[in-house]
Simulated assay, not measured.
Amino acid sequence: MSFELPADHIDEAVSWRRHLHENPELGFQEVKTSEFVARKLNEWGYDVVGGYGKTGLVGTLRKGTSSQTIGIRADMDALPISEATELPYSSRTPGVMHACGHDGHVASALAAARALASVEFNGIVKFVFQPAEENEGGARAMVGDGLFRDHPMSAIFGMHNWPALPVGSLVARSDQMMAAFGTFAIIVKGRGAHGAMPHEGADPVVASSQLVTALQTIASRNISPLQSAVVSVTQIHGGDAWNVIPERVVLSGTTRWFDDEIGICIEKRLKHVATSVAEGLGCEAEINYQVRYPATINDPTQASVVREAASRLTTLSIVDALPSMAAEDFAFMLQDQPGCYFWLGAARSGGENPGLHSSRYDFNDAILPQAAQMWVALAQSILR
């Protein structure tokens, strides 16, 4: 069972992708993107319902007599990055670009929706177009607005293009795919002084410098080497003059883990280390720690279903890979429904291959038909 997209449909889907790339929208602001998606789905006979997570929507197509239902999710939002590709279809919105390939995810899901409208299956397919995957938890918002209450599903599936893997490869692990993540901001408060008279103050710059190093002991000395954990300080802000020791310095960063107990340990130790180091150097630490996304853990049965569907496609090969310490808010959907999140290889050959979130990144259109074909194969495989 293998459905081939007509060449003109592929060309049109690429044109949709590039239109979306030219017109990126940030999380919870995907108004025009959502309208574009709804128009296309309506053309092909889908029942479209919006209002989930502000700009999210669901397109439903029923065929045959079965009530079995699957969900196919595509994220729609862009990133606050200034594009540096100089492509003819580069972003027209200053400071905003599709640097993660969500334009390609939307276009390939639309291509699959169009194809499924003209092929046979027995059951219900729901295409879930989700806002705000990047940091803002659009999946959580959609679930909170009643996504699965209003649209019961037996399973839901998500896909991400993966530039670190060659085109034609697919990874669908039976367990961990993406890490949980948290954010922190530590305000180190000291006592300002003249830079030439540091003994008269309490230097938050020195305290912050030692704190950056001390935080690295959490992963190396408090977490088992057999577990995965990351603590990264990504921002340091403080001071305004060459000769002035400031009153405060702000450190910000991110944490990553898979196991819930590891996440609890990281938060507890981060707060204790920050407080202790600051106090030991005559300063204070004010800590704002937030757990943002849970880990993305696949249901093993649904992962097997994905691999089985992929094995029927001559364009794809199933490969194994380690999970990623990056995070993905599809995790909120997997906490509520069984499902599987998989990667499609998207590496560019013969030149530069910018990674996700790079200002030079552009979705590899070569995998668009593969992604659409995979969605069709998955739907037909489950809804026989």
Rank of each mutant, 00 (worst) to 15 (best):
M142T: 05
V231Y: 04
V48L: 12
L270R: 04
Q235F: 10
D362Q: 07
M153H: 01
S108M: 13
F363M: 01
I124P: 00
G190C: 05
T60W: 05
A331E: 02
E30I: 08
S82H: 13
H237S: 10
G59S: 14
G137M: 01
V143Y: 10
H102D: 14
W257F: 04
L41Y: 08
A241D: 11
A327Q: 01
R292C: 08
A207Q: 00
L165T: 00
P246K: 00
Q29R: 14
L57H: 04
G71C: 07
H102I: 13
N298H: 08
W343Y: 09
T217S: 15
L165C: 01
N23A: 05
M142K: 08
G104F: 15
V37P: 00
L215R: 07
P338E: 00
V273K: 02
E200W: 11
M159T: 11
L215N: 03
S304N: 13
V128M: 13
G101R: 04
Q373K: 10
M153Q: 09
G50D: 11
G238Y: 14
E35N: 15
Q290I: 09
Q380A: 14
V376Y: 03
A107D: 07
P369R: 02
S358Q: 11
D103M: 12
T85E: 01
L368T: 06
P246E: 11
H199C: 07
H9L: 14
I81F: 15
G195M: 01
S91M: 05
K32D: 13
V244R: 15
S169K: 14
R269Q: 12
F363C: 02
I266F: 02
M177E: 10
A155R: 10
Q337T: 04
V250I: 11
A113V: 07
W162T: 08
S228L: 01
D103C: 03
W16V: 05
D362N: 14
V249Y: 09
S317G: 09
L215A: 12
A309M: 06
N364R: 03
E25C: 14
G51Y: 00
A321G: 03
S108L: 10
